[in-house]
Design a protein around this nucleic acid. Structure first.
Lengths: 354, 354
DNA sequence: CTGAAAGCGCTTACAG
DNA sequence: CTGAAAGCGCTTACAG
């Protein structure tokens, strides 16, 4: 249970072999200046020979580093508890790395308010974080922020959605196109000849919500590739109130009685479920996104058949851990990490832990 | 970036307040004897007041502990690469906790040989591990082993399958009954009135393979609960050679032309896929278990529609981490951790990372 | 450019 | 029962 403490190891042994002090060895290990080329080379050689790996714990202990991570994500709203899941993952990671002197502070913004994003971002930067994790919901403002962060030369991780060319350390989140394809595949199993399929985008600002469009694209592409004549209709609803959605939906269903399956491109699938339930349209298969309490309720009651999920908790967890692994040089961090695309049904939701 | 080093903290501050040496404080923290009740109480009070949490890194560094974990799992065979996934998870965990002085050594056994299990178990115990992770494939022998391990008073984790009442620290694996139900639900979406469904158990020793029976049970229970008149047939095949399986399967399909879906209760679903492909029976929906290369190939080619997976990599990873968290007192460990039941299709397999 | 010393927050013998 | 000292493997000023 104890290490054998016979011969020297680590910096001491290197120092002994190189005939220098451990201070000099330390300088070489961390590529600090103030060492002659000659000694530097000699020490580097010995380090290689010994395949020396500094003891992280000793290093952390001696350096007394304190690292503050900042997180900028949407607040949990009354409308959706989606963001509670990434937040839980972030908290879990925070607990695990607390012992290494890392603190994680979260800043929140309102998904309906660009202004709140800017304010929270500003507040966050004021605290001079050593690493930042953000969910870049507002594209333009997020790019501005990402550039500020880059100027400060601190690592940046994106979760939930990506922004191209932002020099971010990593992106952890879904592949939207492919999740749309998967939804199509699931629907394709159940429909008959001549059935029609409806894709619904519910968003107050669809033009900027390229998310939904990428899912819709994957969805339609699947049927194209399948070479089936299934007719895919699309309904864009730019209001989120039930009454407005109901009007648009019922009009569509009235005109197209052959619709037998509906794909909602985001977590607002519960609105459609509510309407279908009220209208007693149990004949329509419904599929949508995200492990929200409201959605799960309709899954259990049978109104929703499939939910597609992208491990929101894990996104938060992995985002923080990526920053940690990078700053503590524990391992290389991948530029993009695409989450598995999970299928949740009435029969497996109880074991889905995020 | 630096901690403020003004006032004393940790053991020193406790010692100062209690007017004792840090040695005595240490004795109290670790509940060692040799401290008068009076001083012990005094120190405990101060510890509570300060909400003192010992610095893990300093503690690890000073104690110079070396912990050897042992792992006993089936070897990766030519027939299936299933066990390469838990092994990868184990290796990943090993890499992460290496810096805390933990080594992980794996021992393997042949799934077709009880003898090899016993031998490997013996070999493992000879090395006096401080914690053990096992996949208890052979029930009786595993119980014997679990009892030996208990006598040695070292923590034990099970993965992949559970054994009741073994005083193990934790179990991490699937809920078999529920995964059978999920398979039934998926099939239920696609079948028509009057279609029949076939469940196939392929095992050379089905009586002892209670795994398969629990999945079959869940599978059948789903249809019962659904109150549908769907007829579920069962085929037990106690040979694993393709020729033997083919004979049994074709006889069944010949007698029951209404069979439109097949559920294979384990990873040998690729054998059935091979036969269906050869016989050009694309009309039958096939569903089975595990993310094996062979199975994925048939998923891509369309012969298999769904694979049910239980995160084998994560099981290995979490198993090791549970032992680590327990021994290092990082957090409490749950007695049972049931893995999510994942559904893998042609459209999402590429993002499934275990 | 280099070394010697102090220190990180603990644990471990050892001495009394 | 208790304390003083040495040490874990590093880093950090400081002195030269």
């Amino acid at each position: 249970m104890k290490k054998t403490g016979a011969e020297l190891t680590g910096v001491k042994e290197i120092a002994r072999r190189a005939n220098v002090s451990i201070g000099t060895v330390d300088r070489v290990i961390h590529n600090r200046k103030g060492v002659s080329d000659e000694t530097r080379q000699k020490i580097k050689l010995i380090i290689e020979e010994l395949d020396f790996q500094p003891n992280k714990m000793a290093s952390l202990l001696a350096s007394r580093k304190i690292l503050n991570f900042a997180v900028l994500i949407p607040a949990v709203s009354t409308e959706t508890d989606y963001w509670s899941y990434p937040l839980n993952g972030i908290k879990q990671a925070a607990t695990e790395i607390k012992q290494f002197g890392v603190t994680v502070k979260s800043y929140f913004y309102d998904l309906d308010s660009v202004e709140s994003f800017k304010l929270s971002a500003e507040e966050m930067l004021k605290h001079e974080p050593h690493a930042v994790l953000i969910a870049p919901s507002f594209v333009e403002e997020s790019i501005t922020l990402a550039q500020k962060i880059q100027e400060l030369d601190i690592p940046l991780a994106f979760i939930n959605s990506d922004l191209p060319n932002q020099n971010n350390l990593t992106y952890i989140g879904p592949d939207l196109y492919q999740s749309g394809r998967l939804a199509a595949q699931l629907i394709n199993f159940t429909i008959q000849q001549n059935d029609k399929v409806l894709a619904i985008n519910i968003s107050s600002d669809l033009k900027n919500d390229h998310h939904l469009l990428r899912k819709e694209h994957g969805f339609k592409k699947f049927f194209e590739d399948a070479g089936k004549p299934t007719e895919i209709l699309t309904l864009n609803i730019n209001e989120t109130k039930v009454a407005a959605v109901e009007k648009a939906l019922m009009e569509m269903l009235g005109n197209q009685p052959e619709i037998k399956a509906i794909f909602v491109t985001n977590s607002r699938v519960n609105i459609i479920a509510e309407i279908l339930k009220k209208r007693k349209r149990d004949d329509i298969l419904l599929i949508g996104y995200d492990f929200l309490k409201k959605n799960i309720n309709y899954l259990v009651s049978g109104q929703i058949t499939f939910l597609i999920c992208q491990r929101p908790k894990e996104q938060g967890y992995l985002g923080i851990m990526a920053l940690y692994k990078h700053l503590f040089k524990i391992s290389e961090v991948e530029k993009s990490v695409y989450m598995p695309i999970d299928i949740i049904t009435k029969e497996n939701y109880q074991f889905y832990n995020s």
